[in-house]
Write a protein that binds this DNA or RNA. Structure first.
Lengths: 340, 340
DNA sequence: ATAGTCGCTGTTAACGATACCAAACAGGCG
DNA sequence: CGCCTGTTTGGTATCGTTAACAGCGACTAT
């Protein structure tokens, strides 16, 4: 098997210097139009594939943007990644994706692994990190964006919202619909700081409104539909049930809703249900249930746009620390309608 | 801002040669245990982060496995990616992910872009590619795995199943439950070859069984819940409705189911519904609906395991072309129960 | 004692592209 | 015709690591 051709081979075949071939492969470079076409054609014929490993080393630019998310199998984070990708791909920036499985130690390892690849920027989910992880990010010398939270002490930029406030809004809405005894269904939140923040917001708002409240924890995140079923089963089996159930995610909320249907418990007449995330299912389920749309896609898009302008934007790099606050939307549906 | 340290700096600080530092950072290399510890400690103190761009170039190994999937926002593909990741991460192989948006031209561009990064292997979804894309993959000189289909003429290895056969199985099941007039709800399938295969399987089986059948196409993939609603609305508005509806994905099936609930159409008594994908929702919805579990995670896991053994497995690289056939599981639920 | 083996460390020269600088060339203008 | 400006092209050194090989001391077997 012959070795694959390199630029020097193309150069020889085209009767130009390797430098000219290099220029022919880049948008910005100045090469005669005819020369470029000839070079590209010869490259195609010889089956040349540009080698970015060499380019990366010499130019000290990889075109990578590293991204850490807790889990791929979560429509919210997937949407954020989609937004990032959309904003970045037109600038020749490639996502380098890794997941942390809702675990800050795993995040630290992952971040180190990603930084070895010399990304030009890094996007992390959440604002809680190990000490060493913070240090790594700070010293990396590249733009850092924390998403989904607005951390108290951001490392670099941030695009997110207050999970606690968003949840508090939902509690107020339910209270306005007449709910007086509420349950919060969440997961263990050692690693899921967003889940923990939502729970905090729930408790704070419930206290403030003087609403009776209880908490259910359901094992490690991500909290799925099945867990929602179990939680609702537990709630309904309780001799002294609640008026309203708020779930840490729409998946759990749907599980809860389905459990009600199985038992012929009416929603919202017998019990109200609300979720979090703005998933399609909240709108499609019967009855549709109330949720909070955190605008996952938008979060990614904004983080991506910010990075694109920082990395490829020309001169105005010094806009300092950017804290982008997204406003989650409360989407009210029949599942939390006030009782006639 | 001082420049970040490189191996030579660590070497100087530790009083050893750069080569020894290099060895200290690798598992396999032979370095004195004391020396290694000292080097790693000094590296940590100086905030050194290993630079794989240089390593990649010199060693001609990147540790990348490139993956193309149609869309991240699809639980099935996300599961496959999760399986891949699980199988590969313990071998120091990083996924390099890109999406094609169900478009073979976009796939071609993506594959070229990915190959520039010199991955050690590439996993693509599906068996249909542009001519140039096939050529690129063939000439890349790395293992190629096609997943989710078993192509007629595989480029390299394959891990998948016959979408057509799987769907035919479902048609047979519905026929066995008494359905005699069926509709298939799918998307435009210019790019979605898996969707197209499922439709083919549906038509073939329906013909074979002499079952009346019709097709609904609902715009570009991915087909979502909303499209399922619309399709079911159309079907129910038809003065001459069908017995059973098979959807190209579970999301569409759930949409269809919810439309029935809105209209108080009973499932399965008035109409049967089946989906595809083995999503959680099929099991949780009320009624639970029948689906085909394609074992998405397993597909990724097997592709990953295969690659790990090819790339890191030692000597037995020559096992030739591997065609791994996954057997999808028909999961039968109440939505397609035979009428009493 | 001597050769052979093993474990560890050092030296040199790449990997394949591009930054940087210099040179060749074309065209415009007085 | 010569000078100047701007575009296109070429030569050289280099990015930071590691493959390949050599060297050195310690230990074992004969």
């Amino acid at each position: 098997m012959p070795k694959p051709p390199k630029m020097a081979d193309i150069a020889k075949a085209a009767g130009v210097s390797p430098m000219t071939v290099s220029r022919a492969f880049r948008r910005d470079a100045s090469v005669g139009e005819k020369t470029r076409e000839k070079i590209l054609q010869i490259a195609e014929e010889l089956g040349y594939v540009f080698d970015s490993t060499a380019s990366n080393l010499r130019s000290q630019r990889t075109g990578f943007v590293a991204v850490t998310i807790p889990s791929l199998n979560n429509a919210n984070f997937a949407d954020t990644v989609r937004g990032l990708n959309e904003a970045l791909q037109s600038h020749d920036l490639q996502l380098l994706l890794g997941y942390t499985d809702y675990n800050v130690e795993a995040e630290e390892r992952l971040v180190e692994q990603l930084l070895r690849r010399r990304p030009e920027a890094i996007v992390v989910t959440g604002g809680r990190h190990t000490e060493r992880c913070r240090r790594l990010l700070q010293n990396a010398g590249i733009p850092v964006v924390e998403t989904w939270d607005i951390p108290e002490a951001p490392i670099g930029h941030a695009v997110g919202f207050s999970n606690a406030d968003a949840m508090a809004q939902m509690v107020e809405h339910l209270h306005g619909s007449g709910a007086r005894r509420m349950a919060f269904v969440g997961g263990d939140d050692r690693g899921d700081t967003r889940g923990a923040d939502r729970r905090r917001g729930f408790v704070a708002a419930a206290r403030r409104l003087g609403v009776d409240h209880r908490l259910l924890a359901l094992g490690p995140p991500p909290v799925s539909m099945r867990e929602g079923c179990k939680a609702m089963a537990e709630i309904l089996d309780d001799p002294d049930p609640v008026d309203a159930v708020i779930c840490v995610s729409d998946l759990a909320a749907f599980g809860a809703l389905s459990e009600c249907q199985r038992r012929n418990v009416r929603v919202p007449e017998d019990i109200m249900i609300a979720g979090f995330g703005g998933f399609d299912i909240a709108e499609i389920a019967v009855p549709a249930f109330s949720t909070i749309d955190a605008h996952s896609f938008e979060i990614g898009m904004q983080a991506g746009t910010l990075l694109a302008s920082l990395l490829r934007g020309g001169g105005d790099l010094d806009r300092g620390r950017v804290i982008q606050r997204i406003r989650p939307t409360l989407k009210i549906s029949r599942s939390t309608a006030a009782r006639g």
